[in-house]
Amino acid sequence: MEIIVFLILLSLGYFVGQSIEKSHYKNIIVREAELLHIPVTTDKKTQFDGAGTQGRLFVGNVVISGDYFKLVGSSLRSLVGGQITFYETLADRARREAILRMKAQANNWGAEKVVGLRLETSSVGGKGPSGESKLVSVEVVAYGTGIKQP
């Protein structure tokens, strides 16, 4: 019985997870194209073009969860080492989504560019109250300074 439940969860995790991932990527690509006109750099300082240039902090934050398929795959992989390819897409999606959210706010404000971009990540969950493995969720925070000319 347990093996059946395991296989159902694994298939569900894979098919539903893949479908969500695909649609998220599609959405990310469209929004990235829409906000492509705003350059984002990691420069600490920027050249202010004259008096009246305004700057403002923007923060984009996202938490994305893995699925059961990724959990099983990464658990097996972590026993022998190597690249955990199962979580690569998760980290990629989270990073791009966080930057997009930050850029969207900057765009609404009228920013011409975003400088001093920083990214921070943390994992949410991972272990249950009694130490059992739970689905890993990744949190990414993207923040930077939006610059607007008068």
């Binding site: 194209a33 492509l36 398929f69 795959g73 097996l76 390819t85 980290a91």
Partner: peptide, 26 residues
């Protein structure tokens, strides 16, 4: 504005294949 090439930060090998290989090994 320049579009960032898609998929540069992830492996394109099938995850199912990866899991199957791991499962067979274990």
């Amino acid at each position: 504005p320049k579009k960032i090439p898609e998929g540069i930060n992830r492996t394109h090998e099938s995850q199912v294949k990866d899991l199957a290989a791991l499962a067979i090994f274990f």
